[in-house]
Design a protein around this nucleic acid. Structure first.
Lengths: 222, 222
DNA sequence: TTCTGTGAATACCTTCACAGCG
DNA sequence: CGCTGTGAAGGTATTCACAGAA
C-alpha cells in the first residue's frame, strides 16, 4: 500500500507529536545514536511507546522488528512527512505590538519559516522595516506581494474585530495556512487550515488553576 | 450541592472554552443583550449547544429553563470561576528575542496579567528595562523579587536546553503556574501547572497540511 | 412551548497485549 | 529473544435526545 493511504486519518495530535519526535531524533543523532526504540523515545518525554509506534505506522514501516528505528533515516522521513525539507515563506499581518514582536523574533527563520513581509494599513508604518529588516507593506497589496514573495503562511496579529475580514483576504490571496494570534475562532475554508494560538485562553487557564488549587492542601468542599 | 463539588472533573477543554464563552458574553453585553441561550452562543462559534450547557453545568445552574442565560450574571460568574476578578502579576524568564518581544506586548496587561519583571542572567541586560519600562533583574534574585512583587505566573522564554532547570527554579521560588514557550515538554510538580505554547509545533502542523493537501484536488493516491 | 440540565450513545484517542518478523 | 506493528480494550470528550422546570 502507498504510504499516503492512511494519511487522511491522522489527527492533529499525531502530527504535533511527530514534531516532538523529530526534535528528539535530532538530539539523538547529535549524541551519536544510530538506532533507537519506541521505548527509548517514550522515556524521553512522558509518553506511551505504543502511541509512538502507532503514530509512525500511519506513514509507513520505519522500524525493524527486534531492533528499533534507525535514527538518521527516521528523522529524514519525518522531515519529509512534515514538509520541512524546504522553507515556507511567512508573512505577518498586523504591524502592531504583537506583530512586530513576532517579526523580530528569530525563531521562525531558525526553524525554516522565514518572515519575508509584514502587512499593515497604517501609512506611518508602510514603507518602513522592522528592526531586523523585514519590510512593512500596505495590506492592500497582499495579493501581489504574496505571489512575488511566494508566501505560503500568514501569521494573523490584528485586533479581534479585524481578524475575520483579514482571514478572508488572506485566503483570497491564495495563502492556505494561517497561524492566528487574534482571540477569535476563525473558520478555515475547505483546502485551508487555521492554527490558533490564544494567549488569553492560556493565561486564563492558568488563572483558573490558581483559583481552584490552594498552594498547600486545605480547602475542603462541602 | 456546593458549586465546587464537580470542579475536579473539569477538563482543560472545558476551561479553555469558558474563556471563549466569556469573550462572547462580553460582546453580547456590549451589544445590549440581557439574555442569551446555549444555542445562540453555539452559533457564534462553531460549537454544539449541549457542549456549552454541559460546560456551564460543572459550575452551577446558571440558566433558566425555557429562557436561557442572563448575560451579565453569567459573565460575572465565569469571571469568578476563572479567577479573573483580580490581577495576576507575571514575570518573563529569559530576556532574549522572544522574551523581550513578549515583555513589550501589551496584550498581557490588557487582559489582567501585568508583566512586572523580566529575569535574565546576562550582565549586559540586568539593570536595564524593556522599551516599555519593565525592569530586567538577575535571575539569581528570582526568589526575593517573586515575593516582593507578588508574582504568580512565569513565562518561560529561554532556550530549550535551559528550560528544565529554569522551570525547577521557578517552582522553587513559589510560582505555581508557567506559560512555557520553550520547545520542551516540562513536567509540572503536584500543585503546579504548566501550559505550553510551542510555535514550532504549530508551524510544522501547518507545513504538514501544505504538504498533504494540494491546492485544488488532484493527487490520487495509489 | 422553550430552553436548560443530563443520562445514554457515539466518536475519538490512548493504552494494552500479543502475533509476527528479524 | 526483543521490538515493531496492530487489533482489541479502556478512557475521555462530544453529541444526541429527552425529561423537567419556567
Amino acid at each position: 500500500m502507498p504510504p499516503s493511504a492512511k494519511i487522511d486519518k491522522v489527527s492533529e495530535f499525531t502530527t504535533h507529536r511527530l514534531s516532538v519526535y523529530l526534535r528528539c531524533l535530532a538530539t539523538l543523532e547529535a549524541e551519536g545514536f544510530e538506532t533507537t526504540s519506541s521505548k527509548e523515545l517514550a522515556a524521553r518525554f512522558n509518553l506511551n511507546s505504543a502511541q509512538i509506534r502507532k503514530d509512525l505506522a500511519y506513514f509507513g514501516q520505519f522500524g525493524v522488528r527486534g531492533v528499533g528505528y534507525p535514527v538518521a533515516h527516521l528523522k529524514q522521513q519525518i522531515i519529509g512527512i512534515l514538509g520541512l525539507d524546504s522553507h515556507h515563506n511567512v508573512c505577518i499581518v498586523g504591524g502592531g505590538n504583537l506583530g512586530m514582536a513576532l517579526a523580530e523574533y528569530d525563531g521562525f527563520r531558525e526553524h525554516g519559516f522565514p518572515i519575508v513581509a509584514v502587512f499593515d494599513n497604517s501609512p506611518a508604518k508602510i514603507g518602513t522595516t522592522s528592526r531586523n529588516g523585514v519590510p512593512i507593506y500596505d495590506f492592500r497589496n497582499l495579493n501581489a506581494i504574496t505571489e512575488s514573495l511566494k508566501i505560503e503562511m500568514a501569521v494573523v496579529a490584528v485586533p479581534a474585530e479585524a481578524a475575520r475580514k483579514v482571514c478572508e483576504a488572506i485566503f483570497d490571496a491564495g495563502i492556505r495556512t494561517i497561524l492566528n494570534f487574534a482571540p477569535v475562532r476563525l473558520l478555515a475554508r475547505p483546502g485551508t487550515k487555521v492554527q490558533s494560538i490564544d494567549l488569553s485562553i492560556s493565561l486564563e487557564g492558568l488563572s483558573f488553576f490558581l483559583s481552584n488549587n490552594a498552594p498547600e492542601a486545605g480547602q475542603e468542599p462541602g
